[in-house]
């Protein structure tokens, strides 16, 4: 299968690229510092209503990290191939467009998952070294991880999609940031003066509310359906655009 060959090349290119390590370092540092800050804050003020995990992922800082890192990860996926002309070489080999799109997606997705390992590593450290002992809450932890993976997949598909539109990486990054922010800002609509019905409807799309639910350890199937179908839709769109670009150029 050409997919595996392509996937290994895509994932591999992340792990040999210096930019990817900068992103990894920045994320690990930011998440770690924030985690440490919350932990000390909770200790000093004796806060017991929230877990450290809840406090880490229900902040704007968390979402901003997510919204900035994904465009940086995905901006080069197709743009660079167009710019260097390697797309011509790639698509004259016996590969199908969807294999290329999926390989790009899963390549970025694999690295994205690597980026968020430090957060859960911090939780493990907390469990292992805290005194008195802080238990690791399995359900909230797994649910949070699941939602990060789902939202990540959706945002990455946005990033891959914008990168197929242009050969300029910067434009691809700005465009994907704008689209990701647009989809995220559904969460803000509930702050506006809208009818209860609209508010109700839009709260289904609100990433902030979803994270609130998930990090409490409550599983909800609606975000799973929403993000998975959104990802599939955008990847299909990417595949069509890739074909269209080839057909007209």
């Amino acid at each position: 299968m050409a997919f595996w060959t392509l996937y290994r090349r895509e994932a591999g290119s992340y792990f040999v690229s210096p930019i990817a390590y900068v992103v990894f370092f920045a994320t690990a540092l930011g998440v770690g510092a924030y985690f440490n800050f919350i932990f000390n804050y909770f200790n000093d003020y004796g806060i017991r209503q929230l877990t450290v995990l809840q406090a880490s992922v229900n902040t704007f800082f968390f979402w901003l990290t997510l919204m900035v890192q994904i465009p940086v990860l995905t901006m080069r996926s197709f743009s660079e191939e167009f710019k260097l002309g390697t797309i011509e070489m790639l698509l004259t080999a016996p590969v199908r467009e969807w294999e290329v799109v999926l390989a790009k997606f899963f390549g970025a997705f694999s690295f994205f998952i690597t980026l968020w390992i430090p957060l859960f590593f911090n939780l493990l450290l907390l469990t292992a070294f805290s005194n008195p002992h802080v238990p690791l809450l399995w359900r909230p932890t797994l649910n949070t991880a699941l939602l990060i993976v789902l939202v990540g997949a959706f945002y990455i598909s946005i990033g891959i999609f914008t990168s197929v539109l242009t050969k300029n990486q910067i434009i691809a990054a700005i465009l994907s940031f704008a689209l990701i922010f647009l989809s995220f800002s559904m969460s803000f609509v509930s702050y506006l003066k809208v009818t209860a019905q609209t508010q109700n409807l839009l709260s289904y799309f609100s990433a902030i509310e979803q994270m609130d639910t998930y990090s409490k350890g409550i599983f909800d199937s609606r975000p799973v359906v929403f993000y998975l179908s959104g990802t599939v839709f955008l990847l299909l769109l990417t595949q069509r655009f890739l074909e269209a670009r080839r057909l007209k150029s």
Partner: peptide, 16 residues
């Protein structure tokens, strides 16, 4: 595509 070897004009290659 399985049967041809194509060398494009300005030799695009993966530089990394």
């Amino acid at each position: 595509r399985r049967r041809i070897g194509y060398m494009p004009e300005n030799v695009p290659l993966y530089n990394d």
